[in-house]
Design a binder for these strands. Structure first.
Length: 275
DNA sequence: AATTGTACCTGTCAGC
DNA sequence: TGCTGACAGGTACAAT
């Protein structure tokens, strides 16, 4: 479940190590992960010999910029991992793609459920990835503010939780942080977007920024699968208020935290202090 | 146009 | 013990 804070932590943990590395070879153990170019042969032909210039992130997408205006776009979906390690280390089960570098190290893409994706494109083809092109603003970017959020919620019949998960509205929130943000803002996940008054929109905005910042500071939430590029776990699971806390007492009002299916997702909330 | 449902995968765990 | 079914969750796409 890598969401924005986890992908940002992965980017941070890999950036220094990958910068300047030359790709000497690639092992494509499961080609179905690679969505572009069409053939494995073409992927190999393009990527071998390129060097890594820098790593960037947009929403939950990791962008690895290469020489000659190429870019590797990686999405980990639910169980994807990227691990930087020496080539002598034995390959983990479900390792699908391995990049070999000029220093004997490798970048390995591991994904139990194989939902993750890799695109190799030239920079001017980036908008060909629909999910990336249609992303809403970064929650910590300057084009995300109360006015924007209010405008996006206006007239929406969908529940606020569903709206927070919509990557076209805001980039990077997933199920964990949507629940945590709504608890922080003391708003019920089922409230229609249009029902929020301006004071609630303001609270929601501040909670989104605060929760995401704190999670990045804690290097992400390691609930099940997530680790950073060095295999290290995050620490934010120690700071969660509602996610997977059903049956436990609310930190704010001591009522019992509930878990219900909302908009097809498990949702955790306090029905006493969230209104 | 906006919204809802389902497919994509595999591992884990509860219940029988 | 071993089987079955529910569940985990991000996104694309089909259906309404």
């Amino acid at each position: 479940m890598p969401e924005l804070p986890e992908v940002e932590t992965i980017r941070n943990s890999l950036a220094d190590r990958l910068q300047g590395r030359k790709i000497m070879g690639v092992q494509m153990l499961n080609c179905s992960i690679v969505k572009a170019p069409d053939s494995a042969l073409e992927f190999e032909k393009i990527i071998i010999g390129k060097s890594i210039e820098y790593l960037s992130r947009r929403g939950k997408y990791l962008l690895v910029y290469l020489t000659q205006n190429y870019v590797l776009v990686i999405h980990l979906r639910m169980t994807g991992r990227l691990i930087y390690t020496g080539k002598q280390k034995e390959l983990a089960k479900h390792t699908h793609i391995v990049l070999d570098f000029d220093n004997g190290y490798q970048l390995r893409f591991i994904d139990v459920r194989r939902f993750g994706t890799i695109h190799l494109l030239s920079v001017n083809e980036l908008d060909g990835i629909g999910g990336l092109a249609s992303l809403g603003p970064e929650p910590l970017g300057k084009d995300f503010d109360e006015r924007y959020l209010g405008k996006k919620l206006k007239g929406k019949t969908r529940g606020i939780k569903q709206l927070l998960l919509d990557q076209k509205i805001i980039a990077g929130l997933g199920n964990i942080y949507a629940d945590e943000v709504l608890f922080d803002a003391a708003i019920l996940p089922t409230r229609p977007g249009s029902s929020l008054n301006s004071e609630e929109v303001s609270r929601l905005y501040n909670s989104i920024v605060r929760v995401i910042k704190e999670a990045i500071d804690h290097r992400g939430t390691s609930f099940k699968d997530y680790v950073d590029g060095s295999g290290l776990q995050g620490k934010h699971q120690e700071h969660l208020m509602v996610y997977q806390k059903n049956g436990q007492l609310c930190m704010r009002c001591s009522s019992v935290i509930k878990k219900e299916r909302i908009a097809g997702r498990s949702s955790h909330f306090c029905s006493t202090c969230q209104k």
